[in-house]
Simulated assay, not measured.
Amino acid sequence: MILVLGGTAEARELAVLLQDAGLEFCSSLAGRVARPRLPVGRVRVGGFGGVEGLRDHLRAAEVRAVVDATHPFASGISANAAAACSEADVPLLRLERPGWSAAPGADRWHWVSGHDEAASTSAELGRRPFLTIGRQSLGRFTGPLATHEALVRVVDPPEVALPPRWRVVLNRGPYSVEDERRVFAEHAADVLVTKDSGGSFTWPKMAVADELGVPVVVVRRPGATRGVARVDTADAASEWVRALT
């Protein structure tokens, strides 16, 4: 059994490759999104109960290898996977798409180390921020941007109370350049706040911000887990799995 810690486009792509190769695998989703995009094959939803729970699952399910293909900012899950795999003596691979640090215009962005810094920086740069940082971090912005007219785009409704001048748009994407031009124009967005998620799926908003000369605040990725092999494509992850079987 191969365990894929998923929830990303790369994880879904890997599931297709593993299925095509005839390998037994299970994709695990954290369950933080109400209606997630499901990969092919067997799927489980929900947490494991920390390092101990994941370690016990690896042993009980006779997992032969784990591919951590979670979101680049799911650092807690990645840390738990590294610890559990070490304790259970199960090979672990990190599949993570490249970030945007080398992308066109990245040298002009305002790179910050966390959401608190992103909130304070964006508060100084504009009055009508466009927030695409996920609903779990919104509470860090409500204070610094309390009097701003923020546009929040999330997949599921926020779980925190938002300032009265904020507007929420529930949308999953993907988004085209034309879609993002419309959003920027309708909201008159004067600063974009996002995370270094990487990939092409949400890149159009970055391109439009650059096109319009709108400042961009980007939260850097958390540090990589030490001692874990890494690849940045589903093809490479599939090759790694097949080499073990």
Rank of each mutant, 00 (worst) to 15 (best):
A60E: 12
W111I: 02
P91V: 13
A69N: 06
R59C: 07
A84R: 08
R42S: 10
I77Y: 02
S86F: 01
A103E: 11
E52V: 15
G53K: 07
V43W: 08
P39K: 02
L38G: 05
W109A: 00
P72W: 09
D89A: 15
L54E: 05
A61D: 09
A83Y: 02
A79D: 01
R42P: 07
A103V: 05
P39M: 07
S75W: 00
V43L: 07
G76P: 03
G99E: 06
V63C: 09
A74G: 03
V51D: 08
E52K: 14
R44Q: 07
A84S: 15
W111R: 00
R64V: 14
P98L: 09
S86C: 13
L54A: 09
P98W: 09
V66F: 00
V67D: 07
A74E: 08
P72R: 12
S113L: 12
H57L: 10
G49A: 11
A106L: 03
R42A: 09
E52A: 15
V63M: 09
G49S: 13
A81T: 03
R59L: 14
L58N: 08
H57S: 07
S113C: 11
I77A: 14
V51H: 04
V67E: 12
A60M: 05
A60N: 06
H110T: 00
E87K: 10
E96P: 12
G76R: 14
A79M: 00
R64A: 14
A65R: 03
D68Q: 06
R64P: 07
S101N: 03
L58P: 12
S78Y: 03
A69F: 01
P104F: 12
A84E: 00
A74L: 05
P104D: 07
F73D: 11
E62I: 02
V45I: 15
A61F: 05
F48D: 04
G49V: 10
R94A: 12
A69E: 04
A88P: 07
F48S: 13
A83E: 15
P91L: 08
V40E: 05
L58E: 05
A65C: 14
I77R: 02
T70C: 01
S113I: 06
A81D: 00
R94V: 06
I77Q: 05
G53Y: 03
L95A: 15
H57C: 05
N80G: 00
R64N: 11
V90W: 13
V43Y: 10
V112K: 02
H57I: 03
V40A: 11
G41Q: 04
P91A: 12
D68S: 15
R55G: 08
A74W: 01
F73Q: 06
S101D: 07
V90I: 14
L58F: 09
R97I: 04
A81S: 14
G53C: 09
G99M: 05
V66D: 01
R97G: 03
P98T: 06
A83N: 11
R44A: 06
E62S: 09
I77K: 00
I77F: 05
G41C: 04
R59W: 09
E62T: 04
A102L: 10
F48P: 04
A103P: 02
H110A: 01
G47H: 07
A102Q: 11
R64S: 14
G49M: 10
P91Q: 10
P104L: 13
